[in-house]
Design a protein around this nucleic acid. Sequence first.
DNA 1: TGACAATACATAAGACTTCTATATATATTT
DNA 2: AAATATATATAGAAGTCTTATGTATTGTCA
Lengths: 110, 110
Amino acid sequence: MYSKELLKGTLQTIVLKLLAENGRMYGYEITQKVKEQTEGKIQLTEGALYPSLHKLEAEGLLVTETVNIGKRIRKYYSLTPKGNVQTASKLEEFASFISTMQFLLNPKTS
Amino acid sequence: MYSKELLKGTLQTIVLKLLAENGRMYGYEITQKVKEQTEGKIQLTEGALYPSLHKLEAEGLLVTETVNIGKRIRKYYSLTPKGNVQTASKLEEFASFISTMQFLLNPKTS
DNA sequence: TGACAATACATAAGACTTCTATATATATTT
DNA sequence: AAATATATATAGAAGTCTTATGTATTGTCA
């Protein structure tokens, strides 16, 4: 598990990318997928995830779909066209940021 | 310039690494060095840098040295032994975080 | 069948980091 | 003489995430 600060600013990017890849997902599924794909190194907390999802929805990047699974409600999130565009630009920005940081922190080798 | 959020959590790492590399530096020098080395892509603001330096000092990772340049005061910061240890571990953590993120955001190619 | 863990949603309060704006003062360039 | 660069610093605000908590259903194991 990484120090809390590092993850800041990357949560939205992670969520958007996962949705772009998987079509539609629900909150709990996202936390599990991230945990699984990072071998537990990144674990999203619900207190961070849900506000973030709601914010992305309010911004028009996501839409929701409510499905009843037995007596339980499940809320699926998926990207809007606007969300797709944002995802691409967020990923680009992150990639560029990483390469800048790598250069800054390791000027001799990269 | 990157979105503000991305930088969060990396400022301390940047500062520590620069000090490890350059021996001792003063605040303004740090902002200029980062700007120069990243071709303006990362620009530290004073409002972020000074509180961060003070915090690192309070934690015993940095020590200060005040020097008079003419009538102007200049405050040099340098790493303590504890600061050196922290720097190494921060850099390691960051490298690991980056590789996890790259895997997560681009599972096909990396 | 009873208890516990996993699934699934969500919010409130607070911590922490960083930004914007502001203040102060000297040195250098035009 | 004015503007810009150098140099430190703080206050207030914004934003993100954590911790803690709450609710309810479903599955598993003893």
